[in-house]
Design a protein around this nucleic acid. Structure first.
Lengths: 359, 359
DNA sequence: GAAACAATGGGATACGGTTCCCCCACCCAT
DNA sequence: ATGGGTGGGGGAACCGTATCCCATTGTTTC
C-alpha cells in the first residue's frame, strides 16, 4: 500500500495529484507546465483545468533539485534603510525580476561574523551570485576574507559581485561594479576651489571606509592641482549620518576653525552640517557653502537645494545584475579583457548651496 | 558504471562526496551536520575535517524537499526606495534573521499583474508567509483578489500578512498589522486646530489609497470635534511625493486659496509643501505651519524640524514577523480572539513647524 | 558466560519534479 | 497489406538530503 498521502488532504497539491486527477502521467503534467515538449491540445486542456482547480504551483525546491529552477541573486547590505544603496538594490531587483529571477536580501549590520554566515546561507540556497553592497572597511584581513568568499562561491558555480567598493587584489574570481569615487570628489572639490574657497571643512566619513578614503583622496588631489595647501586639521572623520554632520560642524565652529565651505562625504552628512551652520546663525550658502555626495532625492529637497556629486546607483545595480546574468548565460566566462571590473562615471550636479566666499 | 559525476569535478560538493571521502555513510554525514542524533567524537571529527576541506555546504533545496529547511518570509513592496516601508522591511528582516529565517524581497510597482505573479512565485518557493507592505488602492476587485491570495496561500500551508492597510472583510485567513492611521490624523489635525488654525490645506494622498482615506477621515473628524467647518475645497489629492507637495501648494497659492497651515499626507509631501511656501516668500512656521505624517528621519532633518505623526514602522515589521513565526510554531492556530488583527498606536511628535496663525 | 541492552552506523526510501529512453498508434508510401 | 516514419505519452532514473528501520558492536547484568 502506498505511503503517500491520500488525495484531498490539506497541504500543498503535488504534481502527482494533478496527474492522477487528470488521468495522465506525471511526466505529461510536467511537460504541459514547462511547455518545452510537444503536447496535444486535448492533453494540455485537461491538465490546465486540473491545475486551475487545484490552484497548483510547482515546488521550486524540487524543481531546483531536478535541474531547472528559478535563478536567484542575493543582495547583502549593511543597512537596508540607507538611501543610496537602497537604489542599488532597486536596480538589481528590477533587472532581476524582469528576467524572472528572484532576489534574496540579507543585512549584515557591519558584522563580519554575520556576513560570513549569510554568504554561507546564500551558498546553501544555490544563488547564482552574491552581491555585496557598500563601502568596505579596509582592515588587514578584509582582502583575505573576500578572496575566500570569492573562491568559495566560485567553486559552487556561484559568483561574488562587489558593488561600490574597490576591486580585490590578485587573481580573485569576483566582479566589481564601482563608480568613479575619487574622480567625483576631485570634481566636487574643484568646483569649490574654482568658486574661490580656500579653507574647506572636509567630512569624508570613517577613516577605514574605502569610500571615505577615495573621497578624501580626490579632494586632496584637487587642492594640489589648484596649488592650494590642504589643511589636514580641517578633516573630521565619522559615520555617514546626519548627526555626524551636525556635530562635526558644531565642534569645528566651537573650536574656532575658519572655513568658508563644507565638503561632506554624503548628502545626509551635508544636511546635518547645513543644519548646524544655521543653528549657529550662519546662512547657507551666503556665509558658508555646503556640498554633498551621492545625489539622493534628499539633495534636491533641502533648502537650499544641495550641490552634490551624482552617483548612478540604480544603474550600478542593473550593471551588477547584468554581469551575473551574462556570465551565467554566456557560459561562465567573461567577454571583455576587463569585464570583471566596471567603473561608472560620476558628475557634479550644481544646485544652490555654493557661493563664492564672502570677502 | 555510475552515472554520478566523478569526485573532484568542479561544481558543488554533495553529501555523497563528503561521505565517500570520509569513508562513512551518507546518513552519518547528515547526522553529524544536523546534530540531532548521537555520533561518536571520532566520526564527527572525520566528517568535519572533510567538510572543511571541501568547503561543503548542504543544498538548501534538497534539505527543504526532504523535510527540514530554512524557513523564509517574502516581503512584497511597491517601491523599495520609499523611506517608510523600508523601515518595515528592516523590522521584518532583522527579526527574521535573528531566528535564522531568510527574507525574499519583491517589488510590485503598483502593478496587480506583477503582484499576482510574485505571490505565485513565492508560493512556489514554499515561503512561510507573504507580507504585503503599504496602503492599498481600494478598487472593487481588491478585496476579492486579496481573499484569493489569502486562501491560496493558506491552502499551501503559507500565510498572508497585510501591513499598513485595513483588514480584509469576511472570514479570510490573513493577518493584518496596522497602525492607528485615522487616530494619528485626528491628533495631528487637533494639534493644528488647538493652535488656532482654521483654514488648513489638506494633502492626504491619492483618493483611492486606503492610507489617504484614513488620514483624510481623521482630519475631518477633528474639525467636527472642534466645531470648525471643513472646507473640501482645501483638499488636494495626489501621490506621496515631494513634487506633489510642491505643486499642490504652488497651485493653491496661485488660485488665491487662503490657508494658515498645511496638513500633509507624508513627511516627504510636507517637505515639498514647505519648499513651495518658501519659494513664494512665505516663512515656515511664522506665516504658514506645516505638518507631516510618518516621522521618517527626514522629518527631523528639515528646517524647521517637522511636527509629524510617529508611526512605529520598524515595530510593525517585527510584529508582522512575530505573527508569522508564532503561527508556525504555535501549531498554526492563533491564540487570542483577535490575534489576526494588530493595531499599533501612533502619536504626534511636536517639533518646530507649527505656530499659531498670524493675526 | 550468555543474554539483554545501549550506543552507533549503514541501507533504503521518501520528498516533488524533470527528463531520458522507449513504446505505441496512426499515417503515408510502396 | 506491410514497413518505415513520426508525433505524443508513459515508466523510471535521478537531483541531494533527512530519517526510519535494522544490524553491529561493546557494555552491563544475572
Amino acid at each position: 500500500m502506498s505511503q503517500r498521502k491520500a488525495s484531498g488532504e490539506p497541504g500543498r497539491a503535488t504534481i502527482r495529484d494533478v496527474a492522477q486527477r487528470a488521468g495522465v502521467s506525471v511526466a505529461s503534467v510536467s511537460r504541459v507546465l514547462s511547455g518545452n515538449y510537444p503536447v496535444s491540445e486535448e492533453l494540455r486542456r485537461r491538465v490546465m483545468k486540473v491545475v486551475r482547480d487545484l490552484d497548483y504551483v510547482t515546488n521550486a525546491h524540487a524543481r531546483s533539485l531536478a535541474g531547472g529552477g528559478t535563478p536567484t541573486v542575493a543582495i547583502l547590505i549593511n543597512n537596508i534603510t540607507g538611501a543610496a544603496f537602497t537604489h542599488v538594490a532597486k536596480g538589481v531587483e528590477s533587472a532581476a525580476s524582469l528576467r524572472g529571477w528572484l532576489t534574496l536580501v540579507g543585512t549584515t549590520g557591519d558584522d563580519p561574523e554575520r556576513e560570513l554566515a549569510l554568504v554561507n546561507l546564500m551558498r546553501q540556497q544555490g544563488v547564482a551570485a552574491v552581491i555585496l553592497l557598500g563601502g568596505a572597511y579596509d582592515y588587514d584581513e578584509y582582502q583575505l576574507r573576500m578572496a575566500r568568499f570569492a573562491r568559495s562561491l566560485d567553486a559552487a558555480d556561484s559568483h561574488l559581485v562587489l558593488v561600490g567598493r574597490p576591486p580585490l587584489e590578485g587573481e580573485v574570481p569576483a566582479t566589481t561594479v564601482d563608480y568613479d569615487n575619487e574622480g567625483g570628489a576631485y570634481a566636487m572639490a574643484s568646483h569649490l576651489l574654482s568658486a574661490g574657497h580656500r579653507r574647506v571643512l572636509v567630512l569624508p566619513g570613517h577613516a577605514e571606509l574605502t569610500t571615505a578614503q577615495g573621497r578624501l583622496k580626490g579632494a586632496r588631489r584637487a587642492f594640489e592641482a589648484y596649488g592650494v595647501p590642504f589643511d589636514s586639521g580641517l578633516v573630521r572623520h565619522g559615520p555617514y549620518d546626519y548627526e555626524h554632520g551636525y556635530d562635526a560642524v558644531k565642534e569645528s565652529l566651537r573650536e574656532g576653525a575658519a572655513f568658508t565651505a563644507v565638503l561632506a562625504g554624503t548628502d545626509v552628512v551635508a544636511a546635518g552640517a547645513a543644519q548646524a551652520l544655521r543653528a549657529a546663525g550662519l546662512r547657507v550658502p551666503e556665509d558658508v557653502s555646503v556640498v554633498g555626495y551621492d545625489d539622493i532625492p534628499l539633495a534636491s529637497q533641502l533648502t537650499p537645494q544641495l550641490t552634490t556629486v551624482h552617483v548612478p546607483y540604480e544603474e550600478m545595480g542593473r550593471a551588477a545584475f547584468r554581469a551575473v546574468a551574462d556570465r551565467r548565460e554566456g557560459g561562465g566566462r567573461r567577454r571583455g579583457p576587463d569585464a570583471d571590473h566596471l567603473v561608472l562615471g560620476t558628475h557634479v550636479v550644481v544646485r544652490q548651496s555654493v557661493r563664492p566666499p564672502a570677502q
